[in-house]
């Protein structure tokens, strides 16, 4: 089955030595390369450019816009009109830096909770009888194919004041008054953990499953208690899977929009939501571009770490 969450663990064999490439070989490289350059990389430069512009009542709603018909002079004037005002604005208004901080905090906390729930699950899967494993793997992957929006939506009906969780808790007498969970940060944590759990379980399961069990047997033969064997053998050896899984949860969670918007409340500050509102409600394209640039800068470090880790894992494999 598809194992997208554990991408580079077994891929990207060491590049073959340089060889003469035919014309067809070059075309093959050029097509996806050009697509990604134009539709993935180039847009970032445009975002950066617009983050230096000013909001305007126009179509498109920012100034200056490039007009090549004015020639060199026009371009120079354009550059002269660029300013860092939007970035200054981000530091002045507390909303923005609070959003960044709280996004990173919410994402980190959710990642930790996901790990606490996901590790036993992945471990249980890897230790299950071999005949069960394909089915268990399938069961983890299946929710991943199911719409993200639907899975978040499903929690609204559960967490509402008159929702199913409160009804159940009231019925068995644990609580006397319904708990307010929906539209709080707790609901956001639940939503992130729930939505991203498969991303963490899949790479973790992949490393745990490959773990050489004779090591554990040797430890137990030598009188090592199981919990100690776990901390000294299983845990360190599964670390690459833990790291890959945590990155796969943390990085997208920082910029999450749907979960804080649908499950969170007015006090839930997340940068994805702030950017969305800036763009769709305030129609301030330059400021939302500046928000995106800073978000990208925050995420560059974990993204590069993630890619290095993937690369190392694949080199070790090949």
């Amino acid at each position: 089955m598809v194992d997208i969450a554990a991408p580079a663990s077994e891929v990207e064999a060491a590049p073959a030595p340089k060889k003469r490439r035919s014309l067809g070989g070059w075309v093959l490289i050029a097509v996806p390369y050009a697509w990604l350059l134009f539709f993935f990389l180039a847009p970032f430069f445009i975002v950066f450019k617009i983050s230096l512009s000013e909001i305007a009542v126009a179509i498109p709603p920012y100034l200056p816009t490039f007009d090549l018909s004015e020639g060199w002079q026009g371009i120079r004037e354009n550059f002269a009109a660029f300013s860092l005002d939007n970035y200054l604005w981000l530091t002045e208004d507390a909303l923005y830096w609070k959003s960044y901080l709280s996004s990173v905090w919410i994402a980190a906390t959710s990642t930790a909770i996901t790990l606490v729930i996901g590790y036993p699950l992945a471990y249980g899967m890897a230790r299950a009888p071999a005949a069960w494993r394909p089915t268990l793997l399938m069961l983890v992957i299946l929710p991943f194919w199911t719409s993200f929006l639907i899975r978040v939506y499903a929690w609204i009906g559960i967490l509402k004041n008159e929702g199913l969780l409160n009804q159940a808790l009231l019925a068995i007498g644990v609580i006397d008054d319904p708990l307010t969970i929906l539209n709080t940060n707790v609901a956001v944590y639940i939503g992130i953990v729930y939505s991203y759990l498969p991303f963490l379980v899949l790479p973790l399961y992949a490393t745990l499953e490959k773990l050489d069990e004779s090591l554990l047997e040797a430890a137990s033969d030598l009188g090592c208690p199981p919990w100690k064997a776990f901390w000294t053998i299983t845990m360190p050896l599964s670390l690459p899977g833990v790291i890959a899984g945590c990155f796969l949860v943390f990085i997208p969670a920082v910029g999450e929009f749907v979960i804080p918007d649908l499950l969170g409340g007015s006090e839930t500050l997340m940068i994805g939501k702030t950017l969305w509102n800036e763009f769709f409600a305030n129609r301030d394209w330059p400021v939302s571009s500046a928000v995106a640039v800073i978000l990208l800068l925050i995420l560059v470090v974990p993204i590069v770490l993630f890619q290095n880790q993937q690369q190392r894992a694949s080199e070790k494999n090949s």
């Binding site: 997208i4 991408p7 580079a8 990207e12 590049p15 073959a16 030595p17 340089k18 060889k19 490439r21 070989g25 093959l28 490289i29 996806p32 390369y33 990604l36 350059l37 539709f39 993935f40 990389l41 847009p43 970032f44 445009i46 975002v47 990155f247 796969l248 990085i251 997208p252 920082v254 910029g255 999450e256 929009f257 994805g272 950017l275 969305w276 763009f279 939302s288 571009s289 995106a292 978000l295 990208l296 995420l299 993204i303 993630f306 890619q307 993937q310």
Partner: peptide, 29 residues
């Protein structure tokens, strides 16, 4: 394809969208 000029950039552009927040991808496009 082995090594070619810009291979690192290419593989970076393949892996980055997997973790890139959707709001950034959407806005930039």
């Amino acid at each position: 394809s082995g090594r070619f000029l810009g291979r690192t950039l290419f593989s970076g552009m393949i892996y980055a969208p997997l973790v890139m927040p959707e709001v950034i991808l959407g806005l930039s496009l």
